[in-house]
Structures are given as structure tokens and as C-alpha cells.
Amino acid sequence: MKNETPELFKKIFALSVIAVLIVGFFLAFTEMPKGWGVNVNGRVSRLYVLKNVRTATKSLDSGKFFAKGVKPLRTDVAYTPIEFKKTANLEDGAANVVTSIVVDYRGFDTLGEVTVLFLAVSGVMMLLFGKRKKERKKKTEPSLIMYVGTRIAFSVILLFGIYIFVHGHLTPGGGFPGGAVIASGILGLFLGRRGYSPNHMGLKAFESLSGIAFVIIGLIGFFSVHSFLANFLPTGIIGDLYSAGFIALIYIAVGMKVGSELAAVVDTMITDTEEEWS
């Protein structure tokens, strides 16, 4: 297919699109409301966008969490501050708020994101599918320091990755970064020795079983609380390792899945294959 559009036209077109986007975003950000008030009310918490910075700060200072005209959703439950390591049985006991939004309130989105990654990896594998080529002549073997170093680093990186996703509800991080960290450790192994290949059956089993585990955790919520992906475990005391219900379980599943999938991508990309359509 020949591309006959003149170069100048292409550049002008691209620049005009970018200019429209930039101007639009500039207008958008100048018109955007600034400041917000937060309300945590018993079972229901909510982020309200207020139009005015001054009203927001005033209402925060005076202890009222609402601006004029905005009514609290529940007036029967009084607002109580949360104390670390003391308050128990919150609506969602994760100390890391991001995690509680990502996994509990919007857990269905996370399941979707995991699926998106899974499908992208499946697509790459389907395109690069073929017979594994035989090892070619070894050109340059990495040095001994590289070989030993990557192996030592791998164990530390693996531990760090596991730490990130197990403590996802307490400290920053979670399944996705943890899995990515583990996968970068495995990438190090690939670089450390020519012709390294992980256990394919193990990778495949890990990939499938962790995904199945995620859906099954969702289905347990479906059968016990009668709502898909509902938090069916007690939330515990905020700040404890055993708190926040099923968040840690889901993050372990997500971490294993992301780690094994990214490792599988690196593996498929690195090994030479020959197309077969026999």
C-alpha cells in the first residue's frame, strides 16, 4: 500500500489535532472546580466535588463536611474519625485507601483489567505461535558476574515483589506492581544466561490457576453474600496484616497472574519460533 499523502499535509494535520487537544485541555483545566470535601459516614463514604475552594475549606474547618445545598446521604450515623490500629469493623478496613477503591468498591474493574492483560498476552502468544527453533550457536555468553549477580538479585526481587502484593492493603503497591517486579526479576534471569527458559507448564498452570482463583473468590461472594465480588470476610482492625477482608487474597491472585503473564510474554518474545500452518 503506497502512502501518497504529501508530507506537509500530514504534519499540518497532526499539528492541528494536537493544537485542538491542547487548547481544549487548557480550557478544561481553567474551568475545572477546585477543592473538595470528604465525608465518611458509617457504611457509606463519598467524595463530593464542590464548586468553590473557599466554601470547601470553610466547611472543612468548621467541622461540617458539606457545602450549602449538598445534603449528607445518611444523617442517622454520626461522623467518627478513624484511628490507626484501633478502629475496627469499618466498611472496608484497608489502610491504603487506593487499594480499597481498586479492589473492593471497584473490584469488577480490576477483574476486567486482569482480563485485558490476559487477552493481550494471549494475542501476542497466538501471533508468535510456532515451532520452537533449535538453539543456534552461542555467540556471546554473559559474564560470570552477570550470571551469579542475576541469580542473587532474583531471589531478593522475588521477595520484594511478594512483599508488595501481600501488603497491598497496608502500604502503597498491590498486585499489578508486585507482579511486574517479579516479572522484571525473571527478565534478569533471561539476560543472565543465554538459552534460559522457564518451566512452560508451570507458567501456564500459574497463569490459569491464579485467574481462576480470582473469579472463584468473586463467586464465593456471589454464593455467600449474593453479590458478585462482594467482600465476604470480616474487615478486622485497620492497619493489621489480617484485615480488610478479601483484598489480600485478591491481590495475591492478581500478583501471581500478572507476574506469570509478563514472564510468559518475555519468554515468547525472546525465543525464536518458526511459523507453521501445516
Binding site: V98, P172, G173, P177, V181, A183, L187, V266, M269
Partner: peptide, 20 residues
């Protein structure tokens, strides 16, 4: 949270995958 993810995926893995 986002910083860790961006560092691990954006700076680490995706660069490596691009090079491969």
C-alpha cells in the same frame, strides 16, 4: 502506588520488551 507501577512496568519491562 502509581509511581511503583510506572517504574516497574514503564521504565523496566516495557523498555525491555521494546528492545527484544
Amino acid at each position: 502506588d502509581v509511581a511503583i507501577t510506572e517504574a516497574a512496568i514503564g521504565a523496566g519491562l516495557s523498555t525491555a520488551i521494546f528492545v527484544i
